[in-house]
Amino acid sequence: MTATPDTPAKGPRGWITGRGAWITFLLVPPLVVMTLFVIYPIVSALAYAFYDWNGLRREGFVGFENFRIILFEEPFASTTWQAFKHNIIVFASLMIVQNGVGFILAYCLWRDLWGARFHRVAVFLPVVLSTVIIGYLWKLFFHPIFGVVNQSLKAVGLDSLVQPWLGQSETALAALIFVNAWAWVGFPTLVFLAGLQRIPSELIDAARMETDSEWHLIRKIVWPLIAPSTTVVFILLFIGSFNWFELPYIMAGLDGSPFGSTDVLGLFFYRTAFGNQSAGVQDFGLGSALAVIMFLFIAIVATFWTLHLRKKELDL
């Protein structure tokens, strides 16, 4: 009765070959797709970075020259480092705003108050919308004269706050961060909520007997128990922040206007690789070097941070 297909020793020889052929038939097409369109391009990206490129044509091997130029030679270096700084600001702000508000909302939804289902659907709605729609919508809303943001401020008497949000260096990046948080807050909210809902209610009831302080309850009981959810949410936000491209592209343009105040690595990478209207040059070598640097940075930090957070999960 134990004639499971796991035991190739059983059955006639023809059946084994048939089984082998069947498994091969199942595996080969997906493996070919993955190799051709994921593994091969990623490995090539690494190789491209070590070559000199003339437009779309590959020339000689130049070692680490492209990396040196992108990191240490002007005018590239200052753009790279400034963009990197903006990525860090974006990540840190979103950690606080997007994940912080997400946790508060999840905690409120967890009580399953009247209307919780509605609030759940509402908070997740922007998550399913295209970044292009969200970017254009808020670009219109932030219009200095006719935009809803300034109109609303005037309507409630906060005329002093009326300003060209996307048009000045001081507020442009903050406005983009706000839009990103608005669009994505539903994601951490519902992942945290799923984590909260897995906590056994007896545990919470018991803890409530011990303490009256909600804060104490959150810090000592709730937070440690949803640690696996927080790890995933933090890492995904990290990867997303350093790949940030669509929203600044739509709302601030390829140059990160005004005056590069919203320039991030994703935009700089695209400009370097594919050129833009103002500077028609495209350089696949420098672009690849930048891609490799971004990839290594994201991969290394994400790996170590995941290991660190997982270890803390166990400690808690």
């Binding site: 997906p30 994921v38 990623i42 090539s44 990206a45 491209y48 790949n243 990839f295």
Partner: peptide, 26 residues
Amino acid sequence: FVLLFFMAGLMLPLKLAIIPLFVLFR
């Protein structure tokens, strides 16, 4: 090993391989 090969794709941001993809598709 095959499973691991597929799972590697979960971690790799394909956006950063856009240049080789562009050349490959050309």
